[in-house]
């Protein structure tokens, strides 16, 4: 894909985005450069899609935003991350959560040996008081009625789709202004993916901005307002979602073959990386 694409005018259109990355550079273990000057904006009440193949650096972008890089021996070496105009590049993860950011991590990462409700309460750890926690739980069960009957069940025994819902509900517990989702459609049946897609739209309609990382570009672009395409740690395309969906290169590489059928599905080749136990 040609990388000569100039920064688009859509960015300049929003003078005060909720989240903004400027020229972000991220290095792991002091030597592995994985983000090479990424800039992107998420406006208030927007859904923004971040697309890219395996290893493009999507998860690294999210880690940089949420303060999880240090856990992976990574760090921001250049550029800015601002939330509502304030820099959060040096903030630690808990304080970023308290400022209204929440994420659904890649691979769901629910607490399997906790019950559904305990998962949600863990997600509400940042809630200021009991009332906020109670409201959060109430809202979660309203949004995911199928979890109501399962609140006392161990989350590890739920189906993949239900686990993804627990992961989303858990993230919403802190009443975030911005929700980051890392490949929520991964490994799920098309019917469930459609459900998740509708949920994201609903969550957004209720006032939460969304940054949606996906390899399922068709799904992401169908609900996003704007989108970015990441390749080898650089944004190579960005613009309104409809424009991206119509773009020849995007069609060829992310929506499959340009002809519209036989679309390549990265989802199928991707396997969950076994999560590492952080032993220290």
């Amino acid at each position: 894909m040609p990388s000569s694409h100039a920064a688009s005018a859509s960015r300049a259109a929003d003078p005060a985005p909720l989240l903004s990355l400027r020229n972000l550079e991220v290095v792991y273990s002091d030597v592995i450069l994985v983000l090479r000057g990424v800039s992107l904006d998420v406006g208030r009440d927007r859904i923004v899609a971040l697309l890219g193949a395996n290893g493009a650096g999507k998860t690294s972008v999210l880690r940089a935003i949420t303060g999880l890089l240090p856990l992976h021996r990574g760090r921001i070496t250049k550029g800015q991350v601002t939330l509502d105009g304030t820099s959060i590049a040096d903030a630690d993860a808990p304080s970023i959560v308290r400022r209204g950011l929440a994420q659904v991590m890649e691979g769901r990462r629910i607490f399997t040996d906790l019950t559904v409700e305990e998962n949600l309460r863990a997600g509400g750890f940042a809630c200021r008081n009991r009332a906020a926690l109670a409201t959060g739980l109430e809202r979660a069960y309203a949004l995911f009625p199928q979890l109501t009957d399962r609140r006392k069940q161990l989350a590890g025994y739920l189906s993949g789709g239900e686990q993804q819902m627990v992961a989303i509900a858990r993230a919403l517990m802190s009443s975030p202004r911005l929700l980051l989702l890392d490949e929520p459609s991964l490994g799920l049946a098309p019917k469930i993916v459609a459900q998740i897609r509708d949920l994201i739209v609903r969550i957004n309609a209720e006032g939460t901005a969304v940054l949606l990382v996906e390899q399922n570009a068709a799904m992401a672009l169908s609900i996003a307002h704007t989108g970015y395409v990441l390749e080898h740690g650089k944004v190579v395309r960005d613009g309104p979602a409809a424009e991206l969906a119509a773009d020849k290169d995007v069609q060829e590489f992310y929506l499959g073959g340009g002809t519209g059928n036989g679309r390549r599905n990265y989802r199928d080749v991707k396997t969950y990386r076994r999560r590492k136990r952080w032993s220290a």
Binding site: L71, A102, I110, F111, D113, L114, R275
Partner: peptide, 14 residues
């Protein structure tokens, strides 16, 4: 318990 089960996911929730 959450922190013991998955420290990173727990950290991601504050």
């Amino acid at each position: 318990r959450a922190g013991a089960a998955d420290p990173e996911a727990a950290l991601a929730h504050g």
